[in-house]
Design a protein around this nucleic acid. Structure first.
Length: 963
RNA sequence: GGGUGGUUAGCUCAGUUGGGAGAGCACCAGCCUUACAAGCUGGGGGUCACAGGUUCGAACCCUGUACCACCCA
């Protein structure tokens, strides 16, 4: 884009702020100019985007985090740092595979097995090519200043190499092992999942109490010929191997070592003594099914029990059970037959039938309704089954230890700090991590097997043969499984910078400075990145490197009702719909189309119609970003509020119009950019002073990750100080035909320069509008530069903080507000010129009056201001106090006597309450003697002032009454 | 059951070593005042969840309770 054409085509800015056109011009321009690349100069600042799912789209949570990351990036870039924000996407194994499978089913009526592995993977890549641009398009629209030239994808060859390396090294270090273990098995998706992908849901369930007959004619102490065990999953009965009683339970002490007969099956089950049996619960006996329950597995291990698996990968009952020892080796000599009636039944059908059969056999003692929790797969939504399968695991303990220490030692800092506890709690109770997934889409495990089932780990077949000295004719088959997606994303910070090569990028940008992410992902990702990075990355002294210094944890964006946004609830908001706007029809189509549960569509449509009867208006990217920044407080939940967005869109408009005012008064005029004598008015010195404090404050808030406070500070300064007061104060100067050239120059210069600095301060939050305006304002401020985004970050100049000017302006504002009050309460038209008297003023008041008479007359619309020395010169008048000075408006023609008395009485009452409270404090001996001197002093001053003001007003009332 | 966070104006939320309760939006009244009606001016509105405690003084610190949310079992 040609910059000059852009500025010269239009002579003035549009009357209202039109973000769409501005944003579409600047985003591609910045990128094309290469402004997003690291400068190669100055200290490094780097962060990695948490890679979103490549085929997904950004939701509000992403927009929130990406905005924060961009604020940090732009801020550091302006501070002159060598800034890298690295972007990329994640292959998201299970999510993407499911999506493509569904599409395949819908479009071709085929399953992935119909296609075969290779053809299916081609389909996934096709889909990625088609939809993978979504995310990056959205990021660009949000103004994200990421270095697109370094964009990475977790399935890129280079990254895959890093993943392989990590796997191989961990295996060689003995930190990865393979074994037949119980895992969380998803019977619908046919894959193992990690504990983190399991969602536990409360529900009302049933506890079936079964009688297991004692073998060999034995009886319990109280004469029963059976033990009672209870279960929520009767179908697992088929895989029972023993019954446990508590070692301290005297009721069954003499039965330990004896047997019961497993009903329906007929197997003899040993009675074992184990702590796991809870004496208080039910009968105190518990059936043990080591192959189908995590707790039972541990019990079985303690008592050398076999593992008897009775379920298929689809959670149906097998035709014949499989028995294994604790090492996962097949066991012979155990009766693994399953009664014919149950063979092939789905787990729930089997449950019904087994309960019925037990009841028929008189072995069902009772059915107890209980509240329990069931584990669901977070992707499939079906109940997870603990299942004995061959899987790969990471031995986590040796990795967790240093990862805990890194946070304890402060090498990694969580912001807000409270999240460290969450991290510690999880890390200290961490289990080995199952990293294999029975999927096709993902990083294939670099392990090969020979016909004997021996395992060889290496980067490819040739490497394996060389490494293990295998004969060329030995047949090798690669493991069919892929790695958990989080295994690869755990390498994100260094894998994207070229590791395992020792690259310049790694040297410059690792460790990264900060990670911005949601708390829901601390375990999934943050913890794993810390563990893996510490293990693999060492600095030049060989000290383990952290992946990032700070972890800034954001809250979760919810809808207006505080509900989590989700596709199935139909309450998701696309950040770009906030930006561009969307009609109700399109929004409905978006929310109800392509649903996993179409029956929800009607309900969602209704809700959507109610929440957005007119669709969503366009607000622009800057307004969205500002809103997100303003919402970024330390809380855990953030309820999205369209009203806030609207408010901040209005704020953009305010800034826009302020710029229009400044430009209309400065363009083509002498703004001091070429030198010349400059005279600064009180208002000029005041706004410059306030600007320094704003710079200081915004910078400090950004340093502390308080984006909300930074945004508030900017809002406050721009609207309530620059616009409300300074622009108004500049008018009397600019419109004064007799104003000196130096004075005009000073005011124009201040208008322009303060705006220019403010734009830079606001740029990280609102990149587009600030750039657009800056292009016009910068030359007037005597600055050259291609873009605001490479200008220096403003630095406060302490010498320009001017307390005297601030006090004087407060005085001016006090008088103006007093007069506005009088007008409003006396119902006097805003434009009617008023004659004002000032009485009982001090010499300081007189000085201020003389200095600021013009400001007062213009801004308060005064006919005259008269300084009165003697009471005799005062006509009857309405009154407002400014400090001790009385601002008086003669009543003739303006004032309703009764109304004025009422108004003053209200004020007297209010002061009375203040006085009472302050007197109470000061009459408290303990307060006066124990509170700090300054606090007591303050209260005393306050009391004196309030008393005096009250007396003055009271006197005024008396005088009015006497009239 | 264990843990964490929260409860402040009608709504969404600030409140930084304890010292006169704030913002935006909404509401009421008046204004097209030559940057802005996406605006200007003025105004009403809160037992800071509840109960104790510490303190001269508590929205803030401590204890307990209730409710909400999330995490874990």
């Amino acid at each position: 884009m040609d910059k000059t054409s852009q500025t010269s085509e239009q002579n003035s800015l549009d009357k209202t702020y039109q973000p769409a056109d501005i944003e579409r011009r600047w985003a591609p321009h910045w990128e094309a100019q290469g402004y997003f690349r690291p400068s190669g100069q100055g200290p490094s600042f780097s962060q990695m985007i948490p890679p979103p799912n490549v085929t997904g789209s950004l939701h509000m949570g992403h927009a929130f985090q990406d905005t924060i990351m961009d604020i940090l990036t732009r801020w550091h870039r302006m501070k002159g740092h060598n800034t890298l924000w690295q972007v990329g996407t994640d292959h998201a194994g299970i999510a993407t595979q499911m999506l493509v499978e569904r599409k395949l089913e819908a479009e071709e009526g085929k399953t992935r097995h119909d296609l075969g592995r290779e053809a299916f993977l081609d389909k996934v890549w096709e889909w990625k090519a088609e939809s993978g641009g979504n995310i990056t398009r959205q990021l660009r629209r949000l103004g994200a200043s990421v270095d697109w030239e370094r964009e990475r994808f977790t399935m890129d060859d280079g990254f895959y190499k890093a993943v392989q390396q990590v796997f191989i090294r961990l295996y060689d270090d003995g930190l990865i092992y393979r074994g037949k273990r119980l895992v969380n098995w998803d019977p619908k998706l046919h894959t193992a999942i990690s504990d983190l992908e399991v969602e536990n849901k409360d529900q009302q369930g049933q506890f079936w109490h079964f009688r297991y007959p004692l073998a060999d004619g034995l009886k319990t102490r109280d004469g029963q010929d059976h033990l009672v065990v209870a279960t929520t999953r009767p179908e697992t009965l088929l895989g029972d191997t023993c019954v446990a009683v508590n070692p301290d339970d005297e009721r069954y002490a003499d039965l330990v070592g004896q047997h019961v007969i497993l009903p329906l099956v007929g197997r003899r089950l040993e009675i074992v003594a184990d702590e796991h049996a809870d004496m208080e619960k039910g009968s105190g006996c518990v059936k043990i099914t080591p192959a189908h329950d995590f707790n039972d597995y541990e019990v079985g291990k303690r008592h050398q029990q076999p593992l008897i698996n009775v379920m298929s990968l689809s959670a149906a009952i097998l035709d014949q059970a499989q028995a294994f020892d604790l090492k996962g080796q097949p066991l012979s000599g155990i009766d693994t037959s399953i009664p014919e009636a149950y063979r092939g039944l789905d787990r729930y059908e089997a449950r019904r039938l087994i309960v019925a059969d037990m009841e028929a056999a008189g072995l069902l003692e009772q059915v107890e309704p209980i509240s329990n929790t069931l584990p669901y797969g977070d992707r499939s939504g079906v109940v997870i089954e603990p299942l004995l399968t061959d899987q790969w695991f990471v031995r986590i303990q040796p990795l967790a230890e240093p990862a805990i220490q890194a946070v304890e030692a402060g090498d990694i800092r969580f912001v807000p700090k409270q999240y460290e506890n969450m991290y510690f709690a999880w890390m200290r109770d961490i289990q080995d991590w199952c990293i294999s997934r029975q999927l096709w889409w993902g990083h294939r495990i670099p392990a090969w097997y020979d016909d004997q089932g021996n395992v060889y780990v290496g980067s490819d077949e040739a490497d394996v043969r060389a490494k293990y000295g295998l004969a060329d004719d030995l047949t090798l088959n690669q493991d069919e499984d892929v790695l958990d997606t989080w295994f690869s994303s755990g390498l994100w910070t260094f894998g994207t910078l070229g590791w395992p090569e020792s690259t310049e990028a790694l040297k410059a940008f690792h460790p990264t400075n900060v990670l911005v992410t949601g708390f829901d992902i601390i375990f999934f990702w943050v913890a794993r990145m810390i563990m893996l990075t510490l293990h693999f990355m060492k600095d030049e002294q060989g000290k383990p490197q952290v992946p990032f210094r700070d972890v800034y944890v954001t809250g979760l964006i919810r809808d207006e009702q505080g509900q989590k946004m989700s596709k199935s609830k139909g309450n998701v908001l696309d950040p770009l719909d906030m930006v561009d706007g969307i009609s109700l029809e399109d929004l409905l189509a978006k929310r109800t189309g392509n649903m996993m549960q179409p029956q929800m569509a009607e309900k969602i449509a209704k809700r959507t119609q109610k929440a957005f009867p007119d669709g969503i208006a366009a607000h622009g990217t800057d307004a969205l970003r500002f809103t997100l920044a303003a919402l970024a407080s330390t809380g855990r939940d953030i309820n999205w509020d369209m009203k806030r967005l609207e408010g901040y869109r209005n704020f953009c408009n305010k800034l826009w119009n302020a710029a229009r005012y400044v430009l209309s008064n400065a363009e083509g005029e002498d703004c001091g950019q070429h030198g010349g004598e400059v005279e600064l008015t009180l208002a000029d010195r005041w706004i410059i002073s306030r600007l320094q404090q704003t710079e200081q404050s915004v910078t400090q808030h950004l340093e502390q990750y308080r984006f909300d406070l930074a945004a508030n500070t900017l809002y406050e300064f721009i609207w309530n100080e620059y616009c409300d007061w300074y622009l108004e104060l500049s008018k009397p100067v600019l419109w004064d035909e007799n104003a000196s050239a130096a004075r005009l120059r000073g005011t124009r210069q201040t208008l322009v320069r303060v705006l220019e600095v403010t734009l830079r301060l606001a740029h990280p939050i609102m990149p587009f509008i600030t750039e657009e305006i800056w292009q016009r304002v910068a030359p007037l401020a005597g600055l050259a530069g291609e873009t605001i985004m490479l200008q220096p970050w403003p630095q406060a100049d302490q010498s320009r903080i001017d307390a005297a000017a601030e006090q004087d302006i407060e005085w001016v504002k006090g008088i103006i507000v007093a007069i506005r009050n009088l007008r409003a309460e006396m119902n006097i038209a805003p434009g009617k010129p008023l004659p004002i008297l000032l009485y009982k003023g001090h010499s300081e008041d007189l000085r201020r009056l003389n200095d600021n008479r013009v400001f007062l007359q213009k801004l308060a619309k005064l006919e005259s201001v008269t300084w009165v020395e003697h009471e005799a010169d005062l006509p009857m008048s309405a009154m407002q106090l400014v400090g001790e000075m009385e601002v008086r408006l003669p009543m003739a023609g303006f004032i309703d006597k009764e109304a004025e008395i009422t108004r003053l009485s209200k004020e007297v009452d209010r002061l009375g309450q203040d006085i009472k409270r302050t007197e109470g404090k000061l009459s408290n001996e303990a307060f006066v003697s124990k509170a700090p001197e300054a606090v007591v002093q303050k209260e005393q001053t306050k009391l004196a002032e309030a008393r005096q003001a009250q007396a003055t007003l009271q006197e005024q009332i008396e005088q009015l009454k006497a009239l």
